[in-house]
Design a protein around this nucleic acid. Sequence first.
DNA 1: CGCATGGTTGATATATGTCAAACGTGGTGG
DNA 2: CCACCACGTTTGACATATATCAACCATGCG
Lengths: 244, 244
Amino acid sequence: MNAPVSLPHLRVACSNCNLRELCLPVGLSHEQLESLDELVYTRKRIKRGDTLFRSGDSFASLYAIRSGFFKTRVASPDGRDQVTGFQMAGELLGIDGIGTDAHHCDAIALEDSEVCVIPYARLEEVSQRFEPLQRHFHKVMSREIVREHGVMLLLGSMRAEERLAAFLLNLSQRFTSRGYSASEFVLRMTREEIGSFLGMKLETVSRAFSKFQDDGLISVQQKHIRIADLAGLRKIVGQAGAAC
Amino acid sequence: MNAPVSLPHLRVACSNCNLRELCLPVGLSHEQLESLDELVYTRKRIKRGDTLFRSGDSFASLYAIRSGFFKTRVASPDGRDQVTGFQMAGELLGIDGIGTDAHHCDAIALEDSEVCVIPYARLEEVSQRFEPLQRHFHKVMSREIVREHGVMLLLGSMRAEERLAAFLLNLSQRFTSRGYSASEFVLRMTREEIGSFLGMKLETVSRAFSKFQDDGLISVQQKHIRIADLAGLRKIVGQAGAAC
DNA sequence: CGCATGGTTGATATATGTCAAACGTGGTGG
DNA sequence: CCACCACGTTTGACATATATCAACCATGCG
């Protein structure tokens, strides 16, 4: 499609990828695993700031993130836009394109990244023959729907500081499950992008960060975050019931 | 599961259901259509106010709405809740359960309704043999994801009146595609439920309705809505670009 | 017919947005 | 290599959209 950079066809094997347990069904025999190797023939590198696909692009492939960090965003005709998620290694991009054979959001790399290209026709074909793959793929899509319900809850019913606390906890949990520190990480996105995702202005994001720091919950220096009081953040997210 | 009412097993055929074009793949031969009849063995009636499933229920089936009207909502541990959508005839409920074999939201009938019960194991099995069904099901899930992106855009970036206008236009469009009037309909949900869905308080919903009426865009009398100026509503949704 | 539920409207409070100024920081080119 | 510049961030003062609280009204069900 509109690949900024595309590696020459690399022989790529899911069966010995160390992200396997993040993007593929687990508990398969070695033999079963090899049938998954048919899924991915190529990888693609995307430089920071470049787009993997944009709204309107015709849909052909899904992308599994091998390394790096992305945001997805939708735009309304009148120029507003909304970040719909931040994606990291092991997560799948492009599902939005299946419904109409065209993408409905932009996927933009927030750092130099690499993705596995999964031609959708092949995914359909292999999952037709290989039931665990079909089952797993359905689960991935279902979980994405559930995740979005969570975002709707956040956007529809939480206040600014609650949203930011929930956001930090979510990041922390995802870093943890990838073997990184739960309490110390570098944000890949700007305050404006966080604000767009959380439905608030960048100044409000900045003030909430400062407030958390004043309260001893985190320490923040630009993009570097250290969580000092995980339980305290959790209390902020969950305190609405107490407050009302 | 926790069916409030369940009809005795009724022989039910997708192949001569008049909602076919809404929930199933189109362009199939009569013979192909009959293979879909395996999907649905039973229907279930749900009375207004009763729940079809609730968060935590173990997941076994999807439900295609044959008639009636539902809302789905998620709840946070601290008692907040968020309506995640309103569903009408031809739409599918329960997809949220696939990912973890348990439901993550409640589905509540807003009027006496009837659904077709689609055992998920059967759906998987039939779609394993019958490619157009698999393809169609993927499209349905993908479109749900895209719909939710739209809701995120609405919640994250629109102001109260823009949200309500977008909501009315969305309802109007869905009624139209079911053969009902685009400009005159009865709301099945309360102001509070609209507000929960749109991320605002019921008073704000009510005030926005009144404002639209004062401006000649709609006439509203309790749950009865008549849209007088469709273009005017569209202008409200899309005017952010102009305003900034 | 009367009550319960949902809806409307008003007065006021408050969270967040807006506008503006100053400051850090990292990358680039002289 | 340093200095400068563009970009992102922080913070303050003020504006405003929406929430909150409260009273009253409509309606439809039992």
